[in-house]
Amino acid sequence: MAQPGISICIPAYDMGGKGADYLAASFDRLELQSFRDFEIVVSDQSDTGAVAQVCARYGKGMNIRRVDFTDGPRQSSANANNAMRHASGRILKILFQDDFLARNDALDRIVRGFDRDDARWLLCGSGISRDGETVENPMVPRLNDQLRFGRNTVSSPSVLALRAEVGLHFDESLIWLMDVEFYDRCAQQLGAPVIVPEILVANRLHEGQVSAAVTKSLRRAELRHVWRKTRGRAGWRDLRAYAYQVLKAL
């Protein structure tokens, strides 16, 4: 079987009983994509069979591979990494199960962004959706020096794509900072990303989001972890940004 042009890597779980519905809504958008050379890899940490049923139903028309990961660490970073490890495409596209592609040419725009020989990772524009249909608050991703400490000017991991060959994965010690630490590490190791400014991804807002359950103690612990990992290249501005975020988490 030929290598797919792009793998859509989806970490999935029950999500308070809504996970399968959100996943089905995302699959509906994927079915409409103008670019067809893709596979979908779902890393499933559900305790019910709802996600598996959705994958089976939509698998009749799309190339969907569901990987059971109920024995793995119950957190987004580990679940996303598992989907990436099982992907076979030349490009890996992260897409959280409650988010969805906002345009029918989204995958085509992402794949074309990698036409440059030096393109190793890519970030696209995004917006938020409260109803699963309309998209508002457009955001064009940009990097900043304090990104790894929680100043997120990029958006969720669903705006991310990278060449499979780079071999980078999320830090599984992190929950709150898993995305920004990864963006910062990509910038350090891969250079500047390709930026596609158009809104290609919609981040769904709902009560069950992981960010809503992040405690101040978790924030402090993750900030310490990131500081230890990166303090070798830190200057006084980084120390100030780190201290500011720690004070906010007291």
Rank of each mutant, 00 (worst) to 15 (best):
Q45I: 00
C55Y: 04
N81R: 07
Q33H: 00
R74Y: 02
P73D: 09
N79C: 14
D37T: 01
Y58F: 14
I40D: 03
S34K: 01
F35A: 02
L30K: 03
S76Q: 09
D68R: 01
S26F: 01
S26Q: 06
R36E: 13
V51T: 08
Y58T: 04
N79M: 04
E31I: 10
R66N: 10
S34G: 08
C55K: 07
R57A: 15
A80C: 12
L30G: 00
V54N: 02
T70D: 04
V67P: 07
R66M: 13
F35S: 04
A52K: 11
G72I: 06
G72M: 03
F27P: 14
T48H: 01
S46M: 08
N79F: 11
T70E: 07
I40N: 12
V41M: 02
V41E: 13
N63H: 05
Q75M: 11
F69L: 14
G61H: 15
S76C: 02
R57L: 10
E31C: 10
Q53A: 10
D37L: 01
R57C: 15
S26V: 04
M62Q: 13
R65Q: 13
S26T: 08
I64L: 10
D68T: 04
R57S: 15
D44K: 01
G61P: 11
N79T: 12
S76V: 06
G61A: 14
S43R: 03
V41D: 12
I64T: 14
R66S: 01
S43N: 03
D71I: 02
F27G: 08
N63F: 10
M62I: 07
A52H: 01
M62D: 08
A50L: 00
E31Q: 15
R66A: 11
Q75T: 03
S43T: 10
D37W: 01
L32D: 06
S43P: 09
D28G: 15
T70W: 05
D28F: 05
T48F: 07
R65T: 12
T70M: 06
G59T: 12
S76H: 06
V41R: 14
R66H: 01
N63Q: 10
S46N: 00
M62S: 12
